[in-house]
Design a binder for these strands. Structure first.
Lengths: 181, 181
DNA sequence: CGTGAAAGTATCTGTTT
DNA sequence: AAACAGATACTTTCACG
């Protein structure tokens, strides 16, 4: 179903660099004809490897000058679904993950300015499931790669291995004020 | 230099949804002719609002099945540039930020599997500037929006307000084993 | 900003290796 | 699977109004 050969990987790499490249251009770069490239791209999309095409936009230029990562702390057994429904609906949240470690989740938020960030944070903390938050404001972005194609040979097929916190001695971490009772 | 009107924002929104949409298509959606759309897109690119176009790829489909966020702790006065040069060159790092709070930086890494993640982490911790790390493995991705166009009126021109940790009482946070002496 | 014309692409269909 | 050739329809891009 989803075996990518070297050609597929080079096509993907080319489309990551320039999502508007023509099939002919890509073909020249990887040594295929335009129709052959199209066939492969169609297959990559059907297989879910390529999920779409998008403009790459500078958030700051659109007015999003402030961003932060917020660790979310929930009550004992809060499911991922519950966390999801708590953070969806907050338009400032651009990404959210459940994570190992002390916090239940990590959310990446973007705001127009500090004031807006504070409002968004307040609104988030009003969610029932959320007992506490810990915010780290982004001071500067050092790196921001879209993604890298896996080097050399294909990816390992997930050989199991336990997930879990990579070091949990909860010595009481600093959290945003007012942990709800 | 960078004043976006309603039309510009709708064009950007359209290109975020479909980066390969033709100028004619976009024009129909926003009520402009194809050349008018092209002129605006050219201007948006020249102004740095649109920095490029890219395929949107599912990392898991390319073999990146494991990701984590790593807080990086550095010695007292380590500059952003030094941190940058410490984390660049590690291909697993897909994003890196300097942040407020206890840690000096937060890096987002992607690996093929847990074993690969461990190797990357070890390699990172070998950097001279890095004294400790704290890793949170991503268990599941709840949300992953590309970006949102700012709602309604234009963005506020940054009304100041102090940055800084939003609650720092360092009660000794849990870190990855082996904080270098 | 729109119009219209010229050059370049996309996409389909066969045919051949 | 892929290259190639040829047909049709779109797209891009550049004049000019």
């Amino acid at each position: 179903m989803l075996r990518l050969d070297e050609l597929d990987r080079r096509i993907v790499a080319r489309l990551l660099e320039d999502g508007r490249a023509s099939f002919a251009q890509i073909g020249t770069a990887v040594g295929l004809s335009a129709p052959a490239v199209k066939r492969r791209v169609d297959r990559l999309r059907a297989d879910g490897v390529i999920t779409g095409f998008a403009a790459v936009v500078d958030p700051a230029a659109l007015g999003w000058t402030t961003e932060a990562f917020i660790e979310i702390f929930c009550t004992g057994a809060t499911s991922p679904e519950e966390i999801h429904s708590s953070v969806r609906g907050h338009p400032e949240v651009v990404a959210a993950y459940t994570i190992s470690g002390d916090a239940s989740a990590l959310v990446h938020v973007r705001a127009r300015d500090i004031r807006h960030l504070e409002q968004a944070l307040e609104r988030l903390r009003r969610e029932d499931n959320i007992t506490a938050t810990k915010t780290s404001i982004v001071l500067s972005r050092l790196i921001g790669r879209p993604i890298d194609a896996p080097d050399g040979r294909g990816a390992a097929p997930d050989g199991g291995g336990d997930l879990g916190a990579s070091s949990d001695m909860p010595g009481q971490t600093a959290r945003d004020r007012l942990s709800r009772p």
